[in-house]
Design a protein around this nucleic acid. Structure first.
Lengths: 328, 328
DNA sequence: CTGAAAGCGCTTACAG
DNA sequence: CTGAAAGCGCTTACAG
C-alpha cells in the first residue's frame, strides 16, 4: 500500500479510500491510484484490516462430520445466510469427540470469527464462556449446549419418535425394537424417551432386549438388529434412531425371510424408491441451519438479548415400510 | 497482552513466550504470567499474529455445492489432511456460477489463505495469476483449470464412460441414450466423448436424439429420459452422466412398463438396495480430496515445482441394472 | 478533496 | 533467562 501511494504520488489514506470505494477522491486521483495498484499487483491484506476493524466477517461452523448427508443441507443453509451477510464460513468436524470440538471451537475463536454455529459433541461448554463474554455470538444446533445458557435450535426428537412408534403400534405391532445412537447424545436420549412414551401410552411393557443404544457404525447396528429379529419372540417392527441406523436396518431386513416393519428418524434420498418405500420421521435440516444462522446474525446486530430454545416440528412420511402388519 | 505483561510485571516478549510455549522462561515467571492470563481472560488474537508471520494456517476450499453428497467425502478428506498440517478449512459453494467462484476465491485470497483447493465452475482462471505469483498454493479438483497452468486431480471421466457404455453394448444394447451435464463442464464433455468412443468402437452410429446435455435438475432430466424412452425406436439402455442424473433416471424407469438398462457415473448410497441394483462407474472422491490436499501442502513446502495432472482410475461395479438385456 | 500521525496486537531481531 | 524497539499492513481520528 505504501508502494502504491508512493508510485501514485498520494498519501496512504487516499489509497485506502480508493481500495474501499470511499467517496471523496477526484476521478483523476482515483485513476492514478488504480494504475499504481494494477502495475504493482497490489492485493489488500485483510488480516491487517481485521486487526483494526475488530470484525472479521467470518463465522465458524463446528459439525460432527462434513460427509454426513444430514449435515449437507444444514451447512448449505448456514452458508447461504452467511453469504447474505457478507461473511465467509470456516468449518470443521468434531468426529463426535468432545475434545476435538473444543479444540476446533477455540481455534475458530482465536481467528476471531464473529460467531459460532455448533453442533455439539460434548456436554460441557463452559469453555466458551470467556469467548461469549468477549462478544462471540453463539448458536447451538441439533443438540443443546451443556452447562451454559445459549441459543439452541432443535428438532422435536421426543415428539417425532413418539409419533413414529405410535404409528407402528396403530398398525398392530406390539413387539417393537429401538436402535439408536449413544445415550449421551441428546437426540438419542430424547428419541428413546419418545419410544418409551409411545409404548407406555399403549400399555405395552418394554423388554430390555428390544432396545439397543450405542455407536451407529454398521457392524454394531447389524448385530443389534439381528439379535432383536431372532429368538423365540422376535420384534415385528423396528424404530431406527437416525439415518445411518435406518440404512443398515434396511439391509438386514432385506436379508431376512420374515417381513419386518420399519420407521426411521430422518428422511434420506431414495427412501421412496426402495421396496417397500421407507416410512420416516423427517426433520428439516435446511430450516435448522437457516434458523440458527439467522439468530447468530441477530445476536451480532445486538437485537437479541435472551437465549432461546427453538424447536422445529417433525413430520411423518408414510411410504410402506411403516404400514406393514406384524408378520405373525 | 500489554495488560498481562503489566500485571505479571514482565515484558511483552515474555508473555509471548509463555503463550507460544517457547523455551527460556523460569517456571516461576511462567506461573506468574499464566495467572495474569487467567485473571484477565486473555485470548491471543491470531489476526495480529498472522499479520506478522505471513502464514495463516488456513486453506480455502471452493466447491460447487456443500450439500451435494458427492462432495461430502471429498471435503472430509481435504479437512483431514488440512487438520494433520495444523490448518483450518474455509469453504464455500460456487453454485456452478463462474462469477461466484471468482468472488469466493479472491475473498479467500484477501484473507490470505495459504492455499486454495478449487472445484472450478468457470473455464478462465487467469484471475488467479497474481495470487499464485504471490505464493498462494493452488490445486484444482474434478475439473481442470482454464487458461492457466496448475495442479489438477481428476477422475478418468472419458475411460469410465467408455467402459460403462461398452458394458451396455456387451449386454446386447445398440440404442443407448446419454444424459449428462452442461457441455461446458469438463467432466460432462469427457463423459460424452467416452460414450461416443464406445459407440464408435462397436460400429454403432449415434442418433442425435439419444444424447441430451444440460442442467441436471430433475425436471429437465426427466423430460430428456421420457423423450428417449418414447417414440417408435426408443433407447433400450441409458448411460447417466452423474449421480443426480442417475437418481432421476431411476425414478423415470420405475414408472415405465418396459425394462430399461442403466449404468450411472458415480456410486451412491443404497445403489445396491434398489431393485435391480444400480450398476455404476465409481469414482474415489475421498482419494481425490486427499491427493489434492496433499499436493497443496507439498507446494507449500516448496517441494513441488512443475504443475501436474493426476488422473485417478474409475471402476465399474455391476449390480444388475447394467446387465439387463434389451427389452425388444 | 487530501494526508501525517497514531495505533490495532502481535512477532522479529537484537541486546543485555 | 529477559525486555525495549521496530514493524507487519491496514484504519481511525483529526487537521488542513
Amino acid at each position: 500500500m505504501k508502494d502504491v501511494a508512493a508510485r501514485a504520488g498520494v498519501g496512504l489514506k487516499t489509497v485506502s479510500r480508493v481500495v474501499n470505494g470511499e467517496p471523496g477522491v477526484t476521478p483523476d486521483t482515483e485513476r492514478r491510484v488504480q494504475e499504481a495498484i494494477d502495475a504493482l499487483g497490489f492485493r489488500r491484506n485483510d488480516s491487517a484490516r481485521v486487526l483494526r476493524k475488530g470484525r472479521t466477517s467470518s463465522i465458524g461452523l463446528v459439525l460432527e462430520d462434513l460427509a454426513d448427508p444430514f449435515y449437507g443441507p444444514l451447512s448449505r443453509a448456514v452458508e447461504e445466510v452467511s453469504r447474505a451477510h457478507g461473511s465467509l464460513l470456516i468449518n470443521g468436524s468434531s468426529a463426535e469427540d468432545p475434545d476435538r470440538e473444543q479444540e476446533l471451537a477455540l481455534a475458530l475463536c482465536a481467528r476471531r470469527v464473529d460467531g459460532l454455529v455448533i453442533i455439539p459433541a460434548g456436554d460441557d461448554h463452559r469453555y466458551l464462556e470467556p469467548e461469549i463474554r468477549a462478544g462471540v455470538a453463539t448458536v447451538f444446533v441439533d443438540r443443546p449446549a451443556g452447562r451454559i445458557d445459549a441459543d439452541v435450535v432443535l428438532s422435536d426428537s421426543f415428539g417425532g419418535a413418539r409419533d413414529g412408534v405410535a404409528h407402528l403400534i396403530a398398525h398392530g405391532h406390539r413387539r417393537i425394537g429401538f436402535i439408536g445412537d449413544m445415550p449421551r447424545i441428546h437426540t438419542a436420549a430424547e428419541r428413546l424417551r419418545g419410544y418409551r412414551a409411545a409404548m407406555e401410552d399403549a400399555g405395552i411393557p418394554v423388554e430390555e432386549t428390544w432396545m439397543s443404544l450405542g455407536v451407529t457404525d454398521p457392524e454394531r447396528v447389524r448385530r443389534a438388529a439381528e439379535e432383536m429379529l431372532s429368538g423365540p419372540a422376535p420384534v415385528t417392527a423396528v424404530f431406527a434412531g437416525n439415518n445411518r441406523v435406518t440404512v443398515t436396518v434396511v439391509r438386514v431386513i432385506a436379508e431376512h425371510a420374515r417381513r419386518v416393519a420399519l420407521v426411521g428418524f430422518d428422511d434420506f434420498e431414495l427412501a421412496d424408491l426402495l421396496q417397500p418405500g421407507i416410512t420416516v420421521i423427517s426433520q428439516d435440516p435446511a430450516g435448522m441451519g437457516r434458523t440458527a444462522a439467522e439468530r447468530l446474525f441477530q445476536q451480532l446486530d445486538g437485537s437479541l438479548v435472551v437465549p432461546e430454545r427453538i424447536e422445529l416440528p417433525t413430520r411423518l412420511i408414510a411410504r410402506g415400510s411403516g404400514e406393514l402388519p406384524p408378520a405373525d
